[in-house]
């Protein structure tokens, strides 16, 4: 049981800006990545943060993003030239199912 997303699936992180406590970093909102792991289901932190039960639990995934995808807004940025990351470098984050949209 891997929840709504499969390993290897391309997903987009919701671009939403909801109020309150969330665990999806701003720099990945609206970005496209690939699901590389499914961790199981965990209590919803957005509810736990307010003293609620955190139920229903949510599926949690590790999603992998290319650096250039994560920082695509920086138009004309040559990733290799500034030496801060290489073309093949990536960033992964743990994202709950409610934040992921299939492409």
């Amino acid at each position: 049981m891997t929840g709504p997303h499969a390993i290897g699936e391309t997903v987009r992180v919701s671009a939403g800006l909801p109020p309150g406590h969330v665990r999806t970093p701003l720099f990945l909102r609206g970005r496209t990545g690939v699901v590389i792991r499914h961790f199981g289901d965990f209590p919803n932190p957005e509810r736990l943060a307010y003293g609620l039960s955190g139920l229903p639990k949510l599926h949690l995934y590790q999603v992998l993003f290319r650096m250039d995808e994560a920082w695509a807004d920086e138009v004309g940025k040559e990733s290799v030239e500034d030496g801060t990351y290489a073309p093949g470098d990536t960033v992964a984050a743990d994202i709950y199912e409610t934040w992921l949209e299939p492409l």
Binding site: R23, P25, F39, Q62, P87, G88, D89, T90, D94
Partner: peptide, 15 residues
């Protein structure tokens, strides 16, 4: 080396 993928893992949740 640039041939090594640097993968930054952001520990955003319960892992």
């Amino acid at each position: 080396p640039v041939t090594t993928e640097v993968r930054v893992v952001d520990s955003t949740a319960d892992c």
